[in-house]
Design a protein around this nucleic acid. Structure first.
Lengths: 194, 194
DNA sequence: ATTTTTATTGATTGAACGTTCAATTAAGGA
DNA sequence: TCCTTAATTGAACGTTCAATCAATAAAAAT
């Protein structure tokens, strides 16, 4: 059933299938078989397009990071450049990305845990983290000193990640997410006005 | 070399070896061999004392949770019962436990990730989480309404977990930890006074 | 219609891992 | 000294999994 010029389509289908498997089974129990079956293809296709299972896993993480980055860029363009608006954008981008797919928080946690011991994933994670912190620092620095802004950014980033983590572990992820978004916003705004 | 009555000693040695292996290699690359070698014993001993690898992993998590609980109980007895003192105790207990063993944050993250898909670990994690939240809620409720206290507890718990997570993923865990403890305290105290 | 090229398959291979259990070792008791 | 019993070993076994690659299928080119 070969159709020419389907490389990008197949790659995306495999990434989607990988994310579905990771969300449902966890990274540990995700195998080449669970991915390829979900994609409706054979096991060999993964090594063919990604050089191996590890290549697909990294591509899937890169895809999630790209989506998160684009969510932020889209939101930031719909607002004025005020610090409060920027910060609300950052928080919303970090939360809405998850609402789109219920099980994404679990996927992130799986990636994080593995990134501790795999340099390829660790690099991707650190790039994303640096972006989040520097965006927050920049917004806070327009209303307070550099040092205060640094602290405020770290607290806000920690609270966002903490609610992510708790959503992944919670028995009611959705409720946790909604509460997290709201509580992160009120916290960040209170930092700006005091 | 059988010596009688060594069951509890051997179990503890295996738990220590398991935690060392998890911290160094991660839960995924921790095998019966990496654990038993670190303990200086043979591979079969793990099934003998814990019924299998999974039993040892759960016992190791239970051991970490016990240590965390005892750290809190010890600290709480050295203070008056004021809300501020209680909250500082909770935060300190959650951070000092990690300073004792540098790689503990990585161990926690490994456990958390696996607990998403393994009921035995999930149960342990939820018990610990419920304890943290209810301790915080109780302390805050002495200075504000129930609803406010609930929000404050969730924000504080999220910030603590967020800094834990960031320490595990950071390239400089110690600095991250010190900053986390300090910033969590200033946040929690500001909630009490406003 | 035939050949070439591209896409895909899936059985096979070999390595890694957890578990089992018969054998072994030495302490304690008779 | 001999026997019993608790403690421990590690080779063997069965399973799981990622990777490989020769075979296959169909589109494109001739």
């Amino acid at each position: 059933m070969p159709i020419v010029g389907v490389e990008e389509i197949r790659k995306q289908q495999l990434i989607d299938a990988a994310l579905a498997s990771i969300a449902e089974l966890g990274l540990q129990k995700t195998t080449i078989m669970t991915i390829s079956q979900r994609a409706g293809m054979s096991s060999g296709i993964i090594s063919h397009y990604f050089g191996g299972k590890q290549g697909l896993i990294e591509a899937a993480l890169r895809h999630l990071l790209d989506k998160l980055g684009r969510a932020f860029l889209e939101k930031i363009q719909q607002t004025d450049g005020s610090p409060a608006a920027r910060i609300l954008c950052i928080i919303e981008a970090n939360f809405t990305e998850f609402q789109r797919s219920e099980l994404a928080a679990r996927t992130w946690l799986s990636f994080w845990a593995r990134s501790m011991h795999e340099p390829g994933l660790k690099r991707l994670q650190q790039i994303n983290n640096a972006r989040l912190c520097s965006n927050l620092r920049y917004a806070f620095a327009q209303s307070m000193s550099r040092d205060k802004a640094q602290d405020a950014a770290r607290q806000t980033a920690a609270m966002i990640d903490g609610f992510w983590l708790r959503s992944a572990l919670s028995s009611d992820p959705d409720e946790n997410f909604a509460a997290g978004e709201s509580l992160c916003k009120t916290f960040a705004l209170s930092l700006l006005t005091h």
